[in-house]
Amino acid sequence: MKKGMMQLQTIIYVIFAIIILIAGIFSVQSYLTKLEITTNCELSNMDLAVMAKRTVGSDKCFINEERIVSNTADSREYTVLNFDQGNLIKSKILSNSDTCFDGFDPDKYRAKFYTISPKTEIHSWGNLVCDSPNMNLLVQIDGELGLVELCAYRSEIKEACSNG
C-alpha cells in the first residue's frame, strides 16, 4: 500500500461516520420538533373542546336548569339539579355569551349560533374572522334544530395541524 493510503482510508471512514452521526442527530431533532408542533396543535384543540363543552352542557351558559325537589319519609328535603345537555335556550344565548365564554379572547375565538331550515344566524360572539369553522355542534335551540359553529385562531400552527 502506498505511503499515506492508510491515513486517507481512516480519514474517509471517520468522515463517513460523522456524516451518518449528524444525519441521525438531525432526524431525531426533526422528530422532536414535529412532536412539539403536533402537541401545540392538540393543545389548541383542547381549548376549543372546552369552548364546545361550555356551549352544550355548562350550567353557567345556555342550558336550562331544572331543580327536582324530593322529600324523604322523615320530611327532609333534597334538591337535585337536572340539565338537558344540548338543548340551548335562545334567551340565554343572547344574554349569557360574555359570561359563558369568559377566559377566551374574543379576538382569537368566535361562536356563531344558527337555527337550521332555513339557516338563520341568531347570535355571534367573538371578533375572529374565519373562512371555515373548526368545530360544528348540532344542538337544539328552544326545541328546534340548531347549529353552533366554533372557530379558533390557529394561523401559526394551522399548517402543522393540517399536516400533522
Binding site: 393543545l43 383542547m46 355548562s58 350550567d59 342550558i63 336548569e65 377566559g103
Partner: peptide
C-alpha cells in the same frame, strides 16, 4: 413528558370539569 404539556393538560381538565353541569 414535558412540564408545559402537563400543566396545560391539568388546566384543560380543570376547564372541562368546570364546564360540566353534572
Amino acid at each position: 413528558g414535558d412540564a408545559y404539556l402537563s400543566a396545560k393538560t391539568m388546566a384543560s381538565y380543570a376547564d372541562f370539569v368546570d364546564a360540566s353541569a353534572i
